[in-house]
Computed example of a mutant assay.
Amino acid sequence: MSIVVHPATSYDDVATMVGPKRPDANVCWCLSYRLATSKENRELVGTDRGKRVRKLVRQDPPPGVLAYAGDEVVGWAAVHPRSDTSFATNRKIPHVDDLDVWSLWCVRVRPGHRGQGIVNALIEGAVEFAREHGAPAIEAYPVDNRGAKVDLTMAYVGTLAMFERAGFVKAADTDSVLNRFPRVLVRRDLRN
């Protein structure tokens, strides 16, 4: 199966990947880190979250990338300049230096399509998307699970091993914990 990754400019496909089954449900929509402040995240509820995503997919750059198997959307990765995310001010995730890096904070594959290499394609697609938009480096904040099973609802951040396989290197420990696992900051330099 051939997987292609494109910028997330289709609202319907983003909704398939991260939207709720009921439009009025108050779910993440992958906005929790994309919104600059936790106050904004708390106040944006129900259908307003989907409306915000509709605006984001029309912006340049859009809020991430989508993976396709043929015409079917099978994966999503949220990637954007860190300065446009809550990682810009997050006290638990350090800044390694002053580079204007991009953040990759969510990788999702649709049920029924897992175990087919889609995660690898998504990470590479996110890296290329950031590179094409002039990012000097890209960071992610996966859990260091040391091979232990990660609950699927919390697996969206990825694992250290997954990102190391994609050429990222551990750049720092963080004070963040998810699903009882410490999160680490990994980075891939894009200046070469």
Rank of each mutant, 00 (worst) to 15 (best):
M1H: 08
S2A: 14
V5F: 08
A8H: 05
D13Q: 05
K21F: 04
R22D: 15
D24A: 10
A25M: 03
N26W: 06
C28L: 06
C30M: 11
L31N: 09
S32A: 14
R34T: 08
L35G: 03
S38I: 15
S38A: 13
E40T: 11
N41Y: 15
N41C: 09
V45E: 07
T47W: 10
T47C: 07
T47N: 09
D48L: 08
R49K: 14
V53G: 07
K55Y: 01
L56K: 00
V57R: 00
V57L: 03
P63W: 02
P63M: 09
V65C: 01
L66M: 13
A67H: 07
A67S: 12
A67I: 11
V74S: 02
W76S: 01
H80L: 11
P81M: 13
R82A: 06
S83K: 08
D84P: 00
T85G: 02
F87C: 06
T89R: 14
R91D: 07
K92P: 01
K92H: 04
K92R: 10
H95C: 06
V96Y: 07
L99S: 09
D100M: 12
D100G: 02
V101I: 09
V101E: 10
L104F: 01
L104Q: 02
W105F: 03
C106R: 00
C106W: 00
R108I: 04
H113K: 08
R114Y: 01
G115D: 05
Q116G: 07
I118L: 07
I118N: 02
V119H: 05
V119G: 04
E124S: 04
V127M: 05
E128K: 14
E132Y: 00
E132T: 15
H133K: 04
A135C: 14
P142K: 11
N145Y: 02
R146Y: 03
G147V: 00
A148P: 01
D151M: 02
L152M: 15
T153M: 04
A155K: 09
Y156W: 13
T159C: 02
L160D: 12
M162I: 15
E164G: 12
E164V: 14
R165Y: 13
D173G: 14
D175A: 12
S176M: 11
S176W: 09
V177K: 15
F181L: 06
P182D: 04
R183W: 00
L185T: 12
D189Q: 13
D189R: 15
R191I: 13
